[in-house]
């Protein structure tokens, strides 16, 4: 009989617990329905998320656009600047080269003239005896060669 009472109490406790849970679930359902109805009554098209993202866009969009523009323009500017510089440098170099060539041509001409004039210049007096000697040697050698040739 005692065991029977314990079982009855357990069953009653379980029933009570199930009833409480069922009631809580029912209240929860009612609360969710109520909140959903309240939310559904609000404007449908523009949500607060859209407003917030719009606000976020208003604040960050210009900064983001500036950063993107800087990221794009700086390399492009650098690229064209580099190209312009590169184009300018060869021009200058070519001009310099042309200038150098002209200058070099002038120098070469002057140098050649200088060499011609210096080479064709009379042997200095101090070296005259040597020059005579060399003339004699040359003459002698030429004569001896002619003589040898005749003898042969």
């Amino acid at each position: 009989m005692k065991f029977r009472n314990d079982d009855d109490n357990t069953v009653n406790d379980t029933r009570e617990e199930v009833r409480e849970i069922a009631e809580a679930l029912s209240l929860y359902r009612s609360a969710m329905q109520h909140i959903a109805e309240r939310e559904a009554a609000r404007p449908f098209v523009v949500g607060r998320r859209a407003e917030r993202s719009h606000r976020f866009g208003l604040l960050l969009a210009p900064a983001l656009a500036a950063a993107v523009a800087a990221a794009v323009l700086v390399p492009v500017y650098g690229h064209f600047g580099h190209h312009d510089g590169a184009g300018a440098v060869p021009t200058v170099k070519i001009a310099q080269q042309n200038g150098n060539d002209t200058h070099a041509a002038v120098d070469d001409t002057a140098l050649m003239n200088q060499i011609d004039s210096e080479v064709s210049e009379d042997v200095p007096d101090a070296l005259r005896p040597l020059a005579d000697l060399s003339d004699q040697t040359t003459t002698t050698s030429v004569v001896s060669e002619k003589t040898n040739a005749t003898q042969e």
């Binding site: 969710m32 109805e37 607060r48 917030r52």
Partner: peptide, 18 residues
């Protein structure tokens, strides 16, 4: 209302549900 209620109950986030 029904779809909103389901999403609101599942996500518990008004903006996301809307």
């Amino acid at each position: 209302p029904r779809i909103l209620r389901f999403l609101l109950s599942s996500l518990t986030d008004r903006d996301a549900a809307e």
